[in-house]
Design a protein around this nucleic acid. Structure first.
Lengths: 212, 212
DNA sequence: TGGACTATGTTAATAGTGTAACAAATTATT
DNA sequence: AATAATTTGTTACACTATTAACATAGTCCA
């Protein structure tokens, strides 16, 4: 498979998952792993895993499997290009605070380096080793940040988004219930907690799964 | 379209979204809406919306659109069957606390009615109007709960899951980085915050979107 | 070294999702 | 009342994703 061809969206979404589990295996001291073993750990079909890997060339060896360290190193390079990515968080409410305490960088190379809020009681304090800045100063102080996490109240989502775009942000992880409007070249991923919960309930009540 | 045929997963995931926006329209006093208008609000193609609705029969009128109140009532019945769903939350850390404070029931009929933790300092306290119970008593006290939100540390995910299954839980919304093992008839939805963030960064750095 | 075994990488079949296009039906307008 | 405008519901197609199956090539063990 040609390494220059585009990686399918579904595959790209699984890469960080593979990366994390490979890290676990490495820490456990495992040196090799088969697609079948990895499949059981990440709950993704083994053929899908092999197909996903094959987009990046022949990473394994027939009859052997994959070398954990080699694969890990490969994905490390692939996922993080060269530099670690800095992320900003906007809205230090309950959810925002949870993210600041959450240690993203444990087995990944992501760090929230800037955080903003509108509440004067919060501005200037430190949450999870990040100093909270005034959202009013966002456009002037946000620099060199490609991706922002949006955890503001729904009605603030669009105005804050507009500010983020002016500051040059290219991707937004939107946790608000609001659907934000952005130019075509900006990526937005939505995680709508109510929708997730409600659709799970819908599935459970309407489509009970069959026992094996 | 036959109402008895199975609703596609992708459609079912959008239903709660439609429901919320119809609620907004209703509150704004709008009595009718077209698929095109709704499309702009929820950022879903209008043809997709019409197709989604058509799985439930002919809900609209040609040349007119959809009656907001009728549609709202219909989805209310569809999403909530008859009874409001009670949900349990396991793990009152930063993220769990955020959910307890989050008001799911605002325009939905979902409520977290039970919450558990292992920390003695937290057990017995009240967070967001829910009394925190001891996770050691989970199997004995969890009753009539179909769906649980899992916000425990990764290493606790599997043992807690096993307890939930014994207590009769049918669906789990898993926020831990761990992939849990469950019988075939149990539904699990994963929301992996690190994966979401990392894959967004990957897309932004590797596949910049084209300007319109 | 030789033969049994293993597990990849890929092909081909299948399933699932999204959307452009349009006939049909209804509403709105003159 | 006749015509223009609107908007649905559905068909048809394109695209994306999943997975079973297997030839191939390397591994492992006696």
């Amino acid at each position: 498979m040609d390494i220059n061809s585009k990686i399918p969206q579904a595959t790209a979404k699984r890469l960080p998952l593979y990366y994390r589990f490979l890290n676990n295996l490495h820490i456990q001291g495992k040196t090799r792993v088969s697609s079948k073993e990895l499949s059981e750990a990440v709950k993704v079909d083994s053929a899908t895993i092999r197909r996903d890997f094959s987009y990046f060339g022949a990473l394994g060896r027939k009859g052997y499997g994959y070398n954990v360290e080699y694969l890990l190193e490969f994905f490390h390079k692939t996922l993080n290009q060269d530099t670690a990515s800095n992320v900003a968080l906007i809205g230090v409410g309950n959810l925002g605070t949870a993210f600041l305490h959450y240690n993203f960088s444990k087995s990944n190379d992501i760090k929230i380096t800037k955080a903003y809020d509108a509440n004067p009681d919060v501005i200037g304090t430190e949450v999870g080793h990040v100093k909270i800045e005034d959202i009013a100063q966002l456009e002037e102080t946000l620099d060199d940040i490609d991706v922002a996490i949006l955890t503001v109240p729904g009605q603030a989502a669009q105005p804050v988004t507009d500010k983020l775009l002016k500051a040059g942000v290219k991707g937004i992880l939107n946790f608000t219930p609001a659907r934000i409007t952005v130019p075509a070249e900006i990526r937005v991923h939505h995680i709508d907690l109510t929708v997730e919960l409600q659709s799970l309930i819908y599935f459970v009540e309407h489509y009970p799964l069959d026992k094996k």
